[in-house]
Amino acid sequence: MIRLGALAVGLLFVVNVLWGALQPREAAAPDMTKELHKHPHAIAWAHNGPGNLGIFGTFDRGQLQRGFQVYKEVCSACHSIHRIAFRDLADLGYNEAQIKAIAAEYEMPALDNNGEPTTRKGTPADKFPLIYPNEQAARAAQNGALPPDLSLIIKAREGGADYVHSLLTGYSDNVPKGWTKPDTLYYNPYFRSVNIAMPPPLSADGQVAYTDGSPQTVDQYAKDVSAFLTWASEPKLENRKETGVAAIIFLIIMTGLGYMSYRKVWADVKKPA
C-alpha cells in the first residue's frame, strides 16, 4: 500500500508539471533598456591633445577653475571629492591665499581640549570633507539613492569625461512609448538603466555665473565640470604624460645609438661566400 501511495503521488506530480508546461503563457515584455541606452558623444578635450589621442595634451586652467566653480555651486550639494586636498587646487592656478580662503569655507570635524567633538575651519592640508557621514545617512537624504564620491568617477565610468558630459546634458522629458518611468526617477538614455534617481543638476543656462566671459550654457557647464573631474581623478596626469614622452624619446635615442654601435662592430666582418 505504501508503494502504491508513493507511486500515485509521483504520478500526480508529473501530471501537474506537464499540465503547467502545456498551458499558454503571456509573452514576457521586451527589455527596451539596451535599445534606448545611448553611447556618450565624443568630445575633443584639451587634455587629450591633438586628435583626442590622449598624448601631448594639457589642461586648460581656466576651464578647470570654471569646472571647480560648477562643482562647488551645483554638484557639492550631494557629491563629495574626498580624495582631493585643498592644497591640490594649486594645480588649477589658485594661489596660497585663495586656497586658504576656499578651505576656510568648510567645517572640519575636530576635538576640543576636553576631547569632545567639535569643528574647525579647514586648512590647505585637509581633504574636501564628505557630504554625508555614512552610506545610511546618504540614502536617507536621497530617497534611497547613493550619490557617489566624484573623486574617481571619470576612471570608474566607461567613456570617462565623454560619459559625464553626455549624462549631464542627456535628460529628456520625451519618454519613449512603451518605456515605464516611475515618478521618482528621471529619463536619461545615457545612464546604464535609462531611469536615473538624480534630478537634472544643470537645469538651465545662466545657472552658474562665469566671470571670464565663457558661455553660460548647460553644455559649457557640463564640459567644464567634466574636465575638472578628469583632473580630480588624476591630478598628476600632465606629469605622467611628460614622463612618458621623455621615456619614449630616451628609448628612441638609445635605439639609434645601439644600431650605430651594431653597424660599427660588424662593419669589418666579411659575409660568408
Rank of each mutant, 00 (worst) to 15 (best):
Y259P: 00
S233R: 10
Y221A: 01
V208N: 03
K264S: 05
L257N: 02
T211A: 15
G206R: 08
V225T: 07
D212I: 10
L229D: 00
D219C: 04
T230P: 01
Y221K: 02
T243N: 08
A232H: 03
I248Y: 15
G256R: 03
V208Y: 00
L202W: 03
K241W: 06
I196K: 00
E238M: 08
E238W: 04
T230D: 05
L251F: 11
F228P: 01
Y262G: 06
I253P: 09
P199F: 03
S261D: 04
P235F: 09
V245Q: 07
Y210N: 14
L251R: 12
L202M: 12
D219L: 06
D224Y: 01
Q207S: 11
S214I: 09
W231N: 05
N239C: 07
S203N: 10
D212G: 09
P235A: 13
T255Y: 13
S203K: 12
V245Y: 13
I249W: 05
P200L: 02
T217L: 06
D205M: 08
Y262A: 05
T243F: 14
G213R: 04
Y210C: 10
T255W: 14
S203C: 04
R263L: 15
R263S: 06
M260F: 07
D212M: 14
L237S: 10
L202N: 00
L237N: 12
S214N: 06
P199V: 04
A246K: 13
D224V: 03
L237M: 09
Q220M: 06
V225F: 02
M198R: 02
G213A: 08
Y210G: 05
F250S: 03
I253T: 04
A227H: 00
A247G: 05
M260H: 14
A197V: 10
G206Q: 07
T243K: 12
K264L: 14
P235D: 15
A232N: 14
P215S: 10
S233D: 07
E242V: 10
V245M: 07
L229T: 01
E238C: 06
D205S: 13
T243C: 06
Y259S: 09
I249C: 11
M198K: 00
A247N: 11
A204M: 08
S226P: 03
Y259E: 05
M198W: 00
E242G: 02
R263G: 03
Y210I: 11
I253Y: 05
A232Y: 08
A222S: 11
L257A: 13
F250A: 14
D219T: 10
L202V: 05
D212H: 13
V225N: 02
K236A: 12
G206M: 09
A204E: 11
M254Q: 15
M254W: 12
D219F: 05
V218G: 01
S203R: 12
S203F: 07
G258A: 13
I253D: 06
G244W: 14
P199K: 12
M198G: 01
I249P: 01
E238P: 00
W231G: 06
